[in-house]
Nucleic acid binder design. Sequence first.
DNA 1: GGGGAGAGATGCCGC
DNA 2: GCGGCATTTCTCCCC
Lengths: 246, 246
Amino acid sequence: MLELSDYARLLQNALKKNEVVVIGCTCSVLYSGRAESFLPFGERLIILKADHTLLVHQPTGNVPVNYMKPGSSHSITFDEGKYFLRSRNLEHKEYMDIEIQGVHFFENKYLEDGQKIALSGTEKDMAQMLFEQPEMLEMGFKPLSMEEQTQFGFIDLFGYDKNNNLVVVECKRYTADFKAVEQLKRYVEKIKQAKGISFVRGILAAPEISSNAEALLLQEGFSFVAVKPPKYLERFDAKQKTLGGF
Amino acid sequence: MLELSDYARLLQNALKKNEVVVIGCTCSVLYSGRAESFLPFGERLIILKADHTLLVHQPTGNVPVNYMKPGSSHSITFDEGKYFLRSRNLEHKEYMDIEIQGVHFFENKYLEDGQKIALSGTEKDMAQMLFEQPEMLEMGFKPLSMEEQTQFGFIDLFGYDKNNNLVVVECKRYTADFKAVEQLKRYVEKIKQAKGISFVRGILAAPEISSNAEALLLQEGFSFVAVKPPKYLERFDAKQKTLGGF
DNA sequence: GGGGAGAGATGCCGC
DNA sequence: GCGGCATTTCTCCCC
């Protein structure tokens, strides 16, 4: 069984080599920065990453209970009979003191990973789908631009309807709420003002819409179109059975 | 050196006992659920928690590159010469297939932690501070309610000014943007309508305000008050030097 | 670096 | 369960 002082040395060497370190230990965590927090002693997972990110995870839950951003400086100190893992981020004025009482396990290794995740089914994918298949929105819709930083702001989809009215489309990948309607309204108002037109249509494209949002939508004279974000793998799976078997 | 089949057995036992498992390994990750993603092979950290949360962390970055929510079901399968850690969440219709090529380290332990984090410096703390010290907002302000689900909506702080005008206060712990102004406007409009009053004041309390937000604020006839979220530990430290030394 | 907006957002509270 | 909203939100993109 290693002593705390041995782990302190292991940790310092690992940090120098930009290794990823995982520590299962009993600790308390004091944080001060954008906010402040204290977490009394308990058994947790501490993760130190190659970019000097620090994460503290409790045995349950999705989200780290405490963390320090990339680029922080970590150090081990022994002070009045207690071991501390101290982390600081001067840029963000954030500080953390972790008091470590006992180490249950300790792993360190340099991890090599240059890969980036490929994600589909985002709001952008929705806009792209409607740009390429405008009949999904409504018959006769003629798209002009997509996901563009126009002079009127960042508009998901922009075009003309079959009667040559300007149309602003706001896409949401989840149930649209009244904030989505406010966003749509903001864009429509901007375009009316900038182009000097009195009538611009607004369409909210989302899988669903909340009742409050729908009330506000109708009040503003906008309309809702039910559209789901595209899922390419799901279609692929229907043929290939890659993620099947559940 | 253990074989992949040994780790598969270790993992299955650990999962049964609701232990926390940390695996350093080379893997690829396929996800399908609310969206879809694929992450090619690389060296990563896989964390399995007691509540059946699954996290995949790359060697850099704050955020897990992939994850499964608490309550997922994990299983190890051997298929056509390949090892898979499969996770499914029927409730959320989410699926993940992790193909594991090599294990660099493996730890499992039951972690005991019933503690909850104590956090201060939130928006709620700001509202509480202004409720208790109304002169920080403006002289003569008389608070009525705080962080309450009123019949007009959820309003941070609500009261009368020295001239007995109704005042709605929206607190932001960060630089206030135009969305904060829109939120304030929404509350003021609601109260005007519900009470049948033509004049209700709106105050935005935040450390700073963006120029766009300030323009909209003045246009609406509202006002800004510079207030920082309270930091109790910082004051404590000034005397006690707990988090000092940086 | 600030502003604006999405996120597989998450998490909390209230109805 | 949905709705509304804060978050030590984080992240990306564009100006």
